[in-house]
Amino acid sequence: MSIVETKELTKVYGSGDTALTALNHVSIHIQAGEFVAIMGPSGCGKSTLLHLVGGLDRATSGGVMIEGHNLSDLNDTRLAELRRRKIGFVFQFFNLIPVLNALENAALPLLLDGVPLKAAQKKAAEWLDRVGLSDRHTHRPSQLSGGQQQRVAIARALVSEPAIILADEPTGNLDTHAADEIVGLLRQVSSQWGRAVVMVTHDPRIAAYADRIIFLKDGVMVNETRLEAGALPAQ
């Protein structure tokens, strides 16, 4: 069973004369532990696809299935819960809370989910160590480099042990060296820690780390390319 599946997923923004079809009948399957890159020209619907898969926005038609659950069957409360437990998000601008240190930032999703402080911080510390930040727990975002901030964000995305990580341009704000380190870490998230990683990127060098690349154009999935011969079939 695919961990993520979209069926004829369609998103139309606005209505009437100003209606814009951002996604047009997109059907994809993503397997557990797979690392998939999404590419395509600006405005082709990459972020829209990620938002719909992550339950941050609702489809106009078609559906998203996460581990067999159809997101459109869930009310807002249940959707928010599924998002917290099954999905971790990583963004281009890290989206860390400036007044919290690395440990507090990474522990936040667990606290929001009602986990006691001690347990949450213990878990957060473990993930910070795993992403290579064992000596940076008490640093605030302003005291960390861009690459380090993105590591904190990845630890935060992983702390609730989600099966899926969604990353929108995770290296878009980093220099070449830091970008390589971050995408290398995302590859590890998939290959070593078994999470499905779906990453939007403009950068061919970064996309080449993935097992598979999906190409979008004008809201339509136009092509896909498998890069890792040993990877699971698309269905």
Binding site: G184, P204, R205, A207, A208, Y209, A210, I213, N223, T225, L227, E228
Partner: peptide, 20 residues
């Protein structure tokens, strides 16, 4: 273009794996 792009991406993936 697609065939060429896929082939280049596979080469790039191979080099990236070696490089890492």
């Amino acid at each position: 273009i697609h065939v060429q792009r896929s082939s280049l991406f596979r080469d790039l993936h191979g080099l990236t794996t070696q490089r890492q």
